[in-house]
Each structure stands twice: as structure tokens, then as C-alpha cells.
Design a protein around this nucleic acid. Structure first.
Length: 882
RNA sequence: GGGCGCGUAGCUCAGCUGGUAGAGCGCUCCCUUUACACGGGAGAUGUCACGGGUUCGAGUCCUGUCGCGCCCA
């Protein structure tokens, strides 16, 4: 016997273990079936499950389970990302606790320490995903730094290098002075901060007392100035340009030219700008155009180097700024200081380090070339975005893409397969031995840099399937079916997978990209540690169960950009789980067991025909919604069927049968109830795997405990069931009648315990039959003493219209005539308003002549119905008065 | 500056291909009826941000305005 409520804690671990033991997660068990593949967005090895992961993986799992039940050979490919920077920082922090440092240990020892950390503490998220119920094929779990994937990374690098798509270049990069590494454009986060715009006077050479004023937010960089730029059309400066005037950089004493360049905007400030090619991306371009010298004034840690005057050397860049401003003030060269708010580049991980444009030699990938096909295949529809709007975001970025800086000055990651000879010759090879061979046996030094973490992630859809080997998995599962991810990594990951997939596999990595919405807290605020509004999904799992959380997330996965999640919503769906549980409990108490020989197409009772048809309808809705990745529609359709149809009406309808003496009817009701319950368990399984699997196990089949697992049950295909409109109409009528009586009872304050009588007047033969057939059910649900047909409305009756008939409820003394009259008049008003609306429409010549025939007919019919109802209500009111 | 999204019941949101609105939560009243009070029954609440247009007909299509948010530069 089932308990009153479902206990997730008791069930989840046990059920998950059963799935895992059964091998149900494994791909390749159905060699003849259609393959279906999802690759997981690999979480960081340092990661802990957050609500975004919970959403992302709940949706992936729903699809994986759905397609598995549909008989496909499903591979949900799990794995983790080595997360270069994040992991290195975590391990460095651990070492610091033991008074150890990376630099003291040296590279080799440090990497050992990272691997040890990875084995001992990394990958907690894998366990957390299992708690959610993730049915990934863990036997095939991969890691971006494992041997196979590392081999893929090296091969890709070497090939791209040989194709001249990877090259080394010396230019400005975004530099993180704390980590002392380059980062890519994407890893820069602009943050609006208060700052100053310093207007500084540069003395003009040979013109005592004359100045040219430039404005800057970064005075310290003036130590690296190599020009002042003005616009060629700016009349104020034309004479200076013509005279080839020069300015004297006041702190270095350097003589710098005044050049004409479009970078200077005559409308802004003085119209003149200082040019620092070594420390500003725009100025770098200006410098190239005018062949200006480039002075690097910073060390790798952000302190000033030896190319600045002695007094500034070794100062941190922010202290240097203060010193420079103080000195200028002393010289009287500050024209004015204007407070402004401006965007300052920060590292995207901690958002606390100001990044510097910094001149270094780095490795770049020519993504501009690779982007062309990535754009093309989406334009051609070979990969579809869902919702399709996201394709625009993707296009926009790829069409304006800049070279990708792929080298990082870190230790944890894929070290570049690059070696240098003593003379600086570059050897790029798949192994050191090969590089040495190329160098004719010379001694080589390996490039110490590692690759951007996203470089290996970009290969994920094929590297995890065994590439560069031509494995059967690769042939079978590439292109993968659908990628499910969040919009924040469209650039970082999706676009790059598209480029790499097209280049190395000559086909798209996935046919569909589903971009889910972003999870906000209940108030619509982005969750963040600093705000303290982070919801731990595992807390929700602990409190309400994984199913409730998953169902909540699916229900919220709509077409909009954001979703708000909080405990209240999860609680609602925990309640839904309880409802489902109790419906099954009811079935159990009434001996509703699953019969293998049961044929839903051949039930004889109208209620059963009706619920079978309703189940078929819901199955169709859930299926279509899942096929089109409309998770919210799928979840809602299932919810509605369970609660509003199966529980609220069907189970109530069969109670009299189950308690009755007609053994044939009882048996059919039991079988149908069990069959419908089983259908529900199947439809809900992708969303609520634990409770459905548990109920599947706890229900009986042929009076014996079930041996099968729901995870492997076939998805309900009820499309071949005959539609039975007459059963639907009949049960609709019963529902309307019962609701009508309940409504009157409630408004007339008839106590629930009081049984009343019902008289049906003016009913057709068919209606009379309906009343007859469902008398027991109607009496129970409407709490009737008796229900008869008759030609006379008894005095003191409350009345309402149902179809062509009138229902009278003689309430005797209980009836409140004033109230009843008001109730009827309200109904009448409603009907009359409706008639007026239809009349307005139908008397509109334009409408009658232009609207399609079926719409017209429908409107006329509705008008007639409303008119008939109004007439009956008028009669009822008249009777009341008499 | 460029792009995208949102503005529907008190709150959170559904409303796909145009035929005047739905759910959950909350609220009011009633009910311990033998699956479920994590429940049952009955209610109340909306000039669908605003203006214009297309159309016989617009929450739904087009356009403008206002407000909010996000991404990119």
C-alpha cells in the first residue's frame, strides 16, 4: 500500500541505482534503431551545480528520456571541461593554504598537484547531475584534458597551423596583470565606473606659452604617447598641421608629432587626442597608419617599466596615475578635470581586475575565414536555432568576428604543440620527436603557453566521439541531434563548435540548437554571490524532490528570455507530484491493475471511451510539444490531463462503478483506469523520472509485481485510436450538469451534506438517456437525492439552462428568491450581451460578404444558442415571479 | 551608436498559423465527502502599456511613442 505522500529522499537514490545497473543509459544497445545524440555543455571541473545547470540538464534529460522511450538509440554524452583559469586559481589557492606556491613548485610539480586535485575534489558536479536524475551515458564520460581529447586538440592545432589559419602575431591583446596572461575579447567585461576626464595641456615646441589640449581618462599612459592627433578638417588646428608643429610631452620631454587622423573628433573636447599606440586599441591602429613608434610602458604585472622616467619606474599603474596627475598639476598643465562615467574593461571571472591593452606576441586563429561556412550553414537551415531569433545574435557576431587569441600564459591546459630552435625557428608538430625530426635533430625548446580552454570545447561534438579516429560512434552520432544550452555561450562555444565542426568534419555539429532562457530569482534579479540571492538547486531537491524542481524548470522553459524560480513554484509542483501519487494510490486501493490484453480501442463504457480519447489527445499534445522543444507546453499538457481531467473527473466518474455491483463495468473501469495511469506515467517520465519510475514499480501488472523499467517503456503512440466525439459530448454534458448544480448549491448556500432533488425539463430523448446512463455518477457528484425528467418545474426551484433543457432544483424553503432572481438575471444579461455582439457582427454587410463561410456559420450558430438560452432564462425568471 | 527581447488578472507568466482572453500563486466563501487539506467545491478580478494603420474582425500583423531589460561597439 502506498503512503499518503511520495518521499523523494527515500526513493531517488535507489531508483537511480536501478537505472544505472540496468544499463538503460548506455548508447549502442539498439544498433538497428535511429541514433539520437546530445552532447552535454561540459561543466567546469571546478563547478558546483547551480540553477542554470539544473535547467540545462533537466531539459537535456527530458529529451534524452523521451527519445529513448521512442525507441531511438540515445547517446547523451557527458563530460567536463578542464577550465584553465578557474582550475588553476582553485589549486593555487589550495596550495597557498599550505604555504606553497606555483612558482616555487615549478610547472611539472604544479600540474601533478592539479591532477591530484582533479581526482580528489574535481567533478563534484557529476554526482550532482546524477541527483537530478540525469540519464547520461556515464560510461563514456570524457574530460577535455584526457588523452583522447588532448590528441584531438594537438591534431587540430597542427592542421590549422599548416593551413595558415593559426599564426603568431605581435599586437595588442587584453592582458590580465594579475594572472599575467592574455585573454580573448570575449573574456573582457566592460563595467561602467566613475572616473575623470583629465584635460592636459601639451606645450607646443618652439611656441612659448602655446599649448595643445588633449583629454584622457588614463593620464599615466601619456608616458607612452608618441603623437597628438587632430582632424584634418578641424580649422583650429589647420595651421599647426601645415606648419608640421610638434608637441613636447611634458613629463618625458619627448618631442611628438601632431598628425591628422580621423580618430580625432572635432566635436569632442578640444578636438585633439593623445596617441598611445602601446596601450590603446584605437591608438594602435592610428600608430600603424602614421608609422608611429610604439612604446610599452608596462611590465607584465601592471607596474611601470624602464621606458618611463626613473621616478615612475616600478610604480603600479594606478599609483603612477596619481603621480602623473600630481606632477602635471605642479607644472600647471591640467586644464580641467571633468568627472565622467566610462566603461572600464575587467576580467569576466572575478570582475575585479582592470585589464590592459598590452603588446605581446600571441597565437591567433583566423576565425574570420572559418566563420564564413559557419554562417552559411545556418543561413541554409542545416542547423536551426530554437527560438530562431538567436540566429541573428549568432550571425551578428560571426560577421564581425576578430582574430581569436588562443594562447594563454597559464600552466593548466593544453600546452601548445610548438617548439623553437635556438635561432627562433618555429616547429609545429604532433609530438616533440616529430618536431625534433623536422629540426634535423636539433635541441628544441617548447612554447610554454597553453590554449584557451574554449579551444578544446570547440571540438567537443566530435572529439568526444573518438575523432581523429574514425570510430563507429563518430559515424553514427555525428552530426549530433540537438544542442541544449544558454545564450551566454553562443559566442564562446556554439559558434566555435560550428566553425570547427564544419572545418574538420565537413558537416554541422548539431542539427538544432535550443537556447533556453536564463534563470532569475523570484524578484527577477540575476542570481549572484555578491547579492546573496543564489538559490542552490540541491536545496530545492532536498526540500521538494528532484521531480518537482525538474517539472518547475520545464514548465518555466518558455519562449521568453528569462524565467523566475523560487521555492514557491517548486512547492506547487511538489503538490502536483503528490496529486499524481494519490491518483495511483486510489488505483491501487481499487484493484486497478494493468492487463496486457487490455485494448483501449475496445472499451464499451462511455466514460472509458472518453478518457481513452482524452489520453490520446494529451499524448499527442505532449509528443508534439517535445518534438518541437516546447517544454512548457509539454509539461502543461501533462499537468492539465493529470489534474483537471483524470483526477477531477475520470476517477470521480468511476467511483460509483468501482463500488457498484456490475462486475463487467467494474472490471473495465479498473483496466481503463490502470491503462490511463500507465499512459500518464509514461508521458510524465521525461520530466518526473523518479516518481513515475517508483509508481511503475509499485503498481501491478497481471496481478504481479512489475518487472520492467519505465525508463525503457515504449512512448505512448495513441494516434491509431478511434476518435469518439459522441463520448466526449456526452461526458461534457455530464460535467456541465454537475458543475451547474454545484454552482447553484454554492450560491444558494445549500450545505454540502444536504441532498436535493433535480428535475430535468424539456430534455430530448438523447438527453434523457444521458441522465439515465449517468444517474449514479451525477447523483454522487452533485449530491442529489433524486434526478428525474418531468414537464413541470416545481415551485420554489432554482433553475439553470443546459443545452436544450432546463434544470430545476426545488429547494423549498431554502431558496432565496431575491438571490435566485439576481443570479438568473445576471445569466440573462450575459446571454443578451452575447446576442448583441453577434447581431452587430452579423448585421455588418462587410462581415457577411467577406468572412469565410465556416466562420459565418459558426457565428450564426452561437447567436442561436445564446438566443435560446436567453429565452429559457426569461421563462425561468417569469416562473419565479408567479 | 547598432541589435534583440519584454510590457496581458494583485504577483509570476501561457496565449502557435488573426475570430474579443487562460494557468499557477494569492484573495473571498463553503467543505475533515472512505486517493489526496501538499486536498475538494464555488467565486471575484483584465479599455491585453499608449497612438496610428492593415483587415469584415487584432492581445495576435505593420508602424510610431513611452517604460523596463539584455547583448554588442
Amino acid at each position: 500500500m502506498l503512503d499518503k505522500t511520495f518521499d523523494p529522499k527515500e526513493v531517488e537514490g535507489r531508483i537511480y541505482a536501478r537505472w544505472a545497473e540496468s544499463g538503460a543509459f548506455r548508447a549502442g544497445r539498439r544498433p538497428d534503431a535511429e541514433p539520437f545524440c546530445i552532447v552535454i555543455p561540459p561543466p567546469n571541473v571546478t563547478g558546483r551545480l547551480h540553477i542554470g545547470h539544473a535547467l540545462n540538464n533537466s531539459l537535456q534529460d527530458a529529451i534524452a528520456r523521451f527519445e529513448r522511450m521512442r525507441g531511438k538509440d540515445v547517446l547523451w554524452q557527458p563530460g567536463m571541461d578542464h577550465a584553465g583559469i578557474a582550475t588553476q586559481l582553485v589549486v593555487e589557492r589550495e596550495l597557498a593554504k599550505r604555504q606553497q606556491s606555483r612558482l616555487e613548485m615549478g610547472r611539472e610539480k604544479f600540474l601533478e598537484a592539479v591532477w591530484t586535485w582533479k581526482e580528489e575534489s574535481g567533478g563534484a558536479i557529476g554526482e550532482q547531475l546524477r541527483r537530478l536524475g540525469a540519464s547520461a551515458d556515464w560510461s563514456r564520460e570524457r574530460f577535455t584534458m584526457d588523452d583522447g581529447l588532448s590528441r584531438a586538440v594537438v591534431k587540430v592545432f597542427v592542421e590549422l597551423y599548416r593551413q595558415n589559419l593559426i599564426y603568431k602575431d605581435k599586437r595588442l591583446v587584453n592582458w590580465d596583470p594579475r594572472l599575467q596572461t592574455a585573454v580573448s575579447d570575449l573574456e573582457v567585461e566592460s563595467i561602467e565606473l566613475k572616473g575623470n576626464l583629465w584635460h592636459i595641456k601639451y606645450p607646443l615646441e618652439g611656441r612659448a606659452g602655446e599649448y595643445i589640449t588633449v583629454a584622457t581618462t588614463r593620464p599615466e599612459t601619456m608616458l607612452g604617447d608618441t603623437a597628438v592627433a587632430v582632424h584634418a578638417d578641424d580649422q583650429r588646428y589647420k595651421p599647426l598641421l601645415e606648419a608640421k608643429a610638434q608637441a613636447r610631452q611634458p613629463l618625458t620631454g619627448r618631442l611628438i608629432p601632431i598628425v591628422a587622423d580621423e580618430i580625432a573628433d572635432p566635436e569632442k573636447g578640444s578636438g585633439a587626442v593623445k596617441i598611445t599606440p602601446g596601450h590603446d586599441f584605437n591608438d594602435f591602429e592610428v600608430g600603424r597608419r602614421h608609422k608611429l613608434p610604439l612604446i610599452n610602458i608596462l611590465n607584465r604585472d601592471g607596474t611601470l617599466n624602464d621606458s618611463v622616467p626613473k621616478k615612475y619606474r616600478g610604480l603600479d599603474r594606478f599609483l603612477a596615475r596619481k603621480a602623473v596627475v600630481a606632477d602635471l598639476e605642479e607644472l600647471g598643465l591640467i586644464d580641467k578635470i571633468e568627472p565622467i562615467i566610462h566603461a572600464v574593461p575587467h576580467d569576466e571571472k572575478t570582475k575585479t581586475v582592470v585589464l590592459e591593452p598590452y603588446l605581446t606576441e600571441q597565437w591567433y586563429l583566423d576565425v574570420r575565414t572559418l566563420a564564413k561556412r559557419a554562417v552559411q550553414v545556418v543561413e541554409e537551415g542545416r542547423t536551426k536555432f530554437v527560438p530562431e531569433n538567436w540566429a541573428n545574435v549568432y550571425f551578428n557576431w560571426l560577421r564581425n568576428i576578430q582574430p581569436w587569441c588562443i594562447s594563454r600564459q597559464l600552466w593548466w591546459g593544453h600546452q601548445l604543440p610548438v617548439w623553437y630552435g635556438d635561432d627562433g625557428t618555429i616547429y609545429v608538430a604532433e609530438s616533440e620527436a616529430e618536431a625534433v625530426r623536422q629540426a634535423g635533430g636539433a635541441k628544441l625548446t617548447r612554447d610554454p603557453d597553453v590554449l584557451d580552454t574554449w579551444f578544446s570545447s570547440a571540438l567537443w561534438p566530435f572529439s568526444t566521439l573518438g575523432w581523429p579516429d574514425e570510430t563507429t560512434e563518430l559515424k553514427r552520432f555525428y552530426p549530433t541531434s540537438v544542442l541544449i544550452t544558454g545564450f551566454d555561450i553562443i559566442f564562446f562555444w556554439v559558434a566555435r563548435m560550428m566553425m570547427m565542426g564544419m572545418h574538420f568534419m565537413n558537416d554541422v555539429p548539431f542539427r538544432t540548437v535550443y537556447i533556453h532562457n536564463r534563470v532569475l530569482d523570484e524578484k527577477g534579479v540575476k542570481m549572484s554571490k555578491t547579492k546573496g540571492n543564489v538559490i542552490d538547486p540541491l536545496d530545492l531537491v532536498d526540500e521538494y524532490g528532484a521531480d518537482a524542481l525538474r517539472f518547475t524548470l520545464a514548465l518555466a522553459a518558455g519562449q521568453t528570455r528569462d524565467m523566475r524560480i523560487g521555492p514557491a513554484r517548486v512547492e506547487t509542483n511538489r503538490n502536483f507530484a503528490t496529486k499524481l501519487w494519490n491518483a495511483a494510490r486510489f488505483c491501487e486501493m481499487n484493484g486497478c491493475d494493468t492487463r496486457v490484453d487490455f485494448d483501449p480501442a475496445r472499451v464499451s463504457q462511455t466514460v472509458n471511451k472518453w478518457i481513452v480519447a482524452e489520453a490520446a489527445k494529451s499524448a499527442r499534445e505532449v509528443t508534439t510539444a517535445l518534438e518541437t522543444l516546447r517544454f512548457n507546453d509539454a509539461a502543461r499538457a501533462a499537468y492539465h490531463f493529470v489534474w483537471d481531467v483524470y483526477c477531477d473527473w475520470y476517477l470521480e466518474f468511476i467511483k460509483p462503478l468501482l463500488n457498484g455491483t456490475d462486475e463487467g463495468a467494474k472490471a473495465e473501469a479498473r483496466m481503463t483506469a490502470a491503462w490511463t495511469r500507465d499512459t500518464i506515467l509514461k508521458l510524465l517520465h521525461p520530466f518526473m523520472p523518479y516518481i513515475t519510475e517508483e509508481l511503475w514499480a509499485r503498481t501491478v501488472e497481471q496481478l504481479a509485481p512489475r518487472q520492467t523499467l519505465l525508463i525503457e517503456a515504449p512512448w505512448p503512440d495513441l494516434s491509431s485510436l478511434p476518435r469518439d466525439d459522441s463520448a466526449a459530448a456526452e461526458m461534457r454534458w455530464v460535467i456541465d450538469l454537475v458543475s451547474g448544480v454545484r454552482s447553484v448549491r454554492s450560491e444558494m448556500n445549500v450545505p454540502p451534506s444536504a441532498k436535493i432533488t433535480l428535475v430535468l425539463k424539456g430534455a430530448s430523448a438523447e438527453t434523457k438517456n444521458r441522465l439515465d446512463r449517468h444517474l449514479g455518477v451525477i447523483s454522487t457528484l452533485a449530491r442529489l437525492f433524486s434526478a428525474t425528467t418531468g414537464d413541470v418545474i416545481p415551485p420554489g426551484s432554482a433553475q439553470f439552462v443546459i443545452g436544450e433543457a432546463m434544470v430545476a432544483l426545488p429547494l423549498g424553503d431554502v431558496i432565496d428568491f431575491v438571490k435566485e432572481r439576481a443570479r438568473l438575471e445576471k445569466e440573462l444579461k450575459k446571454a443578451q450581451d452575447e446576442i448583441a455582439r453577434f447581431d452587430a457582427k452579423l448585421s455588418n454587410e462587410q462581415f457577411v460578404s467577406r468572412a469565410p463561410e465556416d466562420v459565418l456559420a459558426e457565428q450564426r450558430e452561437k447567436r442561436a444558442e445564446a438566443a435560446a438560452q436567453a429565452a429559457r432564462l426569461k421563462d425561468a425568471i417569469a416562473r419565479l415571479a408567479s
